[in-house]
Design a protein around this nucleic acid. Structure first.
Length: 759
DNA sequence: AGGAACCTTATTTTT
DNA sequence: TAAGGTTCCT
């Protein structure tokens, strides 16, 4: 089992009991070490499969871990605690819902559900949403929870803050009443449950002797505390991560947890996995050199036994369109040179960049697949069907109620719902419970809806889940509604797919106990606690399925199948690898993104993002950029990304002239100026240079002055500086100027009085 | 209740 | 540019 591992991997796998930090570089066999460690612990009799807890961030990696574990050991992984933070907390809360103060059938709000719950709250409270935009409120609530803070714990330093705290408080009351729980609440509730309930805490502390965490650099403060608490009874924490690949600070991840973990737990017990099995030397050395520009690092240098391979290729084009066309040409050459399209990835910093690339690939007939986009369980029609199902499980779920009470239309209008809302508020009840107090015509209509729900509920106790869903789709009127819709065919297909998903789900449950992602059934845990009272009945298939739908939003990966080029953001590429990788848009303002420059530690995070992107490539890495690009309906001129100059020239091969263009080039001479690269000399058919974009201007003229990127300017107050970005035309034109003494400023060229400095 | 017209905004995303 | 939201009109 461990014979084929390198010495560092072996050392990590066979570490004696105690806390340890494994710094696992990109492509160093991290998942392998993690799963082999689990297998090794079990096989050596050091721990039973049930004494292990393994935590991941995505369902995908949890699944992979289980798959690889069962390939290593002939054990049944069923019932093992391997899953996402949210999945495991859900399981914990289901088993101890009473102690956690939750109804047994609590529903999970996804991000969109939560936002609509907040909007509803603001409306009901008559809050001015200019002052408190729902998104800000959501960010505040989730941010607080992720730091483990309840409304009373949050610092109320000004009036606006007090307003937010008050909304947070009201929101909690609303969730409580409706029996719903949002994502961060799953974690916080579970944390508080363990913190406050000593018997339960001690039980799990005793049970889990080994806790393993994947992607530790992505943990937030609450997750770290949760782990510490759970390990408080003497468990060994085995944390695997890579601080250089921390790219999720914007959603609360705290890289600092790695250093903290080393200090508080690992205490020198740190193993570095630095041998890379993925990329050739030039690629690795480029990535190493780039990331070395970051100051706050735990320190790590990847190396490979493979040769240096090919240099990193750089190509600069005049426009985003030319850049995309060049990428398309090069892909065609790579494919005719024998590469599969599925082994080629085009990466970009922001989703908006995919448009031009898609357009180009589409018109050149190159099959491609875009990662990301809408997930299955997030589709409108699927959410509608799920809302009916959720109301069956819990009619007090006002979010679901409002979603479908009048969909398909049944003549229940805004006035009626407003009235109903008032009644519910009066009696402090859910909308469902308030229906009986409604009289008149609208009361009757609502009564019919309630009757529908109770019919569905009745069916839910006799029909198997897939049939129940079928029944719901039919009797709710969703089917007829979409049949009558022009574009309804796809939606109907998705509804059928929902039935299929339920069939698969139920089948897996019967076959192997509970499915990996929703394992939370009648675990023996609850039985061991006298205060848990009567053993809770097994969760119904419907309840498990609803949790599954919330916790696993469905595929957002491009499907396997047709051999297609892979398009995705750099974030989405984390954890993946390809033979050939194009990183596009290497321009200041885009990558690194301009917004990052004002954030604390933002530039370093962008650099880590670039590092992640580069280390995706096995054989060949391309970095491309455009001198001008259409952004927000305006043409923008930008400088080369600083990241390009952070890679030593010895690893680079410029396919276009390296000399820094001080000005936006003349379009005619520039358009075809690139060399073909040398992708595959055997495919000369693709070598024809492209003609230039017809109307590429060379900068911005305002008044008599002509401004270009890279040009020196002087301002009466700010002094001398260099233009690093231009956008807009005429009186709208703006320049981003880096001043020698006062930093970077954005000035309106029509207003600012600038002198052009010669040279 | 549905559609057209208008306005605003625009980084990254998993659970 | 273009998507999403809101408002206003029929």
């Amino acid at each position: 089992m461990i014979g084929s591992l390198n010495p560092q991997q072996q050392a990590a796998v066979t570490l004696p009991t105690g806390h340890a930090l494994v710094l696992a570089g990109a492509g160093s066999g991290k998942t392998r070490v993690l799963t082999t460690r689990m297998a090794w612990l079990i096989q050596g009799g050091q721990v039973s499969p049930f004494g292990l807890l393994a935590v991941t961030f995505t369902n995908k990696s949890a699944r992979e871990m289980l798959t690889r574990l069962s390939a290593l050991l002939p054990i049944n992984t069923r019932g093992m605690w391997v899953g996402t933070f949210h999945g495991l907390c859900n399981r914990l809360l289901r088993a101890h819902h009473r102690d956690a103060g939750l109804p047994q059938t609590f529903q999970i709000l996804d991000t969109a559900d939560q936002l609509s719950a907040i909007k509803r709250l603001l409306k009901a409270a008559g809050i001015d949403d200019d002052k408190f935009p729902p998104r800000d409120v959501q960010r505040f609530i989730n941010g607080s929870k992720e730091q483990g803070l309840r409304p009373d714990d949050v610092d109320a330093y000004d009036a606006h803050r007090r307003g937010l705290i008050d909304l947070y408080r009201q929101y909690q009351v609303q969730c409580e009443r409706e029996g719903v729980v949002d994502f961060p609440e799953l974690l916080l509730r579970a944390y508080e449950l363990l913190l406050r309930n000593a018997p339960i805490r001690e039980h799990y502390q005793r049970r889990f002797q080994h806790i393993l965490i994947d992607e530790f650099q992505d943990t937030n403060d609450l997750q770290y505390r949760w782990l510490k608490l759970l390990a408080g009874g003497g468990a060994s924490l085995f944390a695997v991560g890579d601080d250089d690949q921390s790219i999720y600070a914007f959603r609360g991840a705290n890289v600092g947890n790695m250093a903290a973990f080393e200090r508080e737990f690992a205490q020198g017990n740190v193993i570095r996995l630095e041998q890379n099995y993925r990329s050739y030397g030039h690629i690795l050395d480029s990535a190493n050199a780039l990331i070395a520009h970051n100051a706050a690092r735990l320190g790590k240098n990847l190396w490979t036994e493979q040769g240096e391979g090919e240099p990193v290729r750089i190509c600069e084009q005049g426009t985003d369109l030319l850049e995309a066309q060049w990428v398309g040409d090069e892909i065609r050459a790579l494919v005719s040179g024998g590469h599969s399209r599925r082994d080629i990835a085009v990466l970009y910093r922001s989703n908006a960049q995919s448009r031009v690339i898609e357009h180009t690939l589409f018109s050149s007939g190159i099959p491609y697949r875009v990662y990301g986009g809408q997930r299955f369980f997030e589709r409108q029609e699927v959410k509608h069907a799920l809302a009916y199902l959720r109301l069956v499980a819990n009619p007090n779920d006002d979010t679901s109620w409002l979603r479908v009470v009048n969909f398909p239309a049944r003549g229940i209008g805004a006035r009626t719902l407003e009235q109903l809302g008032d009644l519910a508020k009066e009696q402090g009840s859910s909308l469902y419970a308030a229906v009986s107090a409604m009289g008149g015509k609208s009361g009757a209509k609502l009564g019919t809806f309630v009757q529908l729900l109770s019919d569905l509920s009745e069916q839910s106790s006799v029909l198997p889940l897939p049939e129940l869903i079928e029944h719901v789709i039919h009797h709710s009127g969703l089917r007829d509604h979409y049949m009558g819709e022009k574009e309804g065919a796809d939606r109907l297909e998705n509804l059928q797919e929902l039935v299929n998903a339920a069939t698969v789900f139920v089948g897996e449950e019967g076959l192997m106990g509970e499915p990996a992602s929703a394992r939370m059934g009648p675990s023996s845990d609850a039985l061991e606690f006298p205060d848990a009272g009567v053993a809770p009945p097994s969760q119904s298939a419907l309840d498990s399925f609803l949790s599954h739908a919330s916790l696993e939003a469905g595929d957002n990966q491009a499907q396997a199948g047709e051999d297609a080029v892979q398009l995705m953001t750099v974030h989405a590429a984390k954890g993946l690898e390809f033979d050939c990788v194009f990183i596009t848009g290497l321009e200041e303002g885009l990558f690194p993104h301009e917004n990052s420059l004002t954030e604390q530690g933002g530039l370093e995070e962008e650099r880590r993002l670039m590092y992640v992107a580069m280390t995706r490539a096995r054989q060949r890495l391309y970095l491309t950029l455009a001198q001008s690009r259409m952004l927000h309906g305006q043409t923008r001129y930008a400088m080369r990304s600083r990241f390009l100059s952070e890679i030593p020239e010895e690893h680079l091969k410029w396919l276009t002239p390296r000399e820094q263009q001080r000005t936006v080039p003349d379009p005619v001479s520039w358009g075809g100026a690139y060399r073909r690269g040398d992708a595959y000399a055997r495919s000369p058919a693709t070598l024809a240079p492209r003609t230039a974009a017809r109307s590429l201007t060379t900068g911005v003229t305002v008044g008599e002055q002509h401004f270009r990127v890279g040009q020196g300017v002087a301002h009466a107050r700010f002094g001398e500086g260099t233009i690093i970005g231009l956008s807009g035309t005429g009186t709208d034109a703006q320049a981003q100027i880096q001043f020698r003494d006062v930093g970077t400023k954005t000035l309106a060229l029509g207003v600012a009085k600038l002198a052009i400095v010669q040279g």
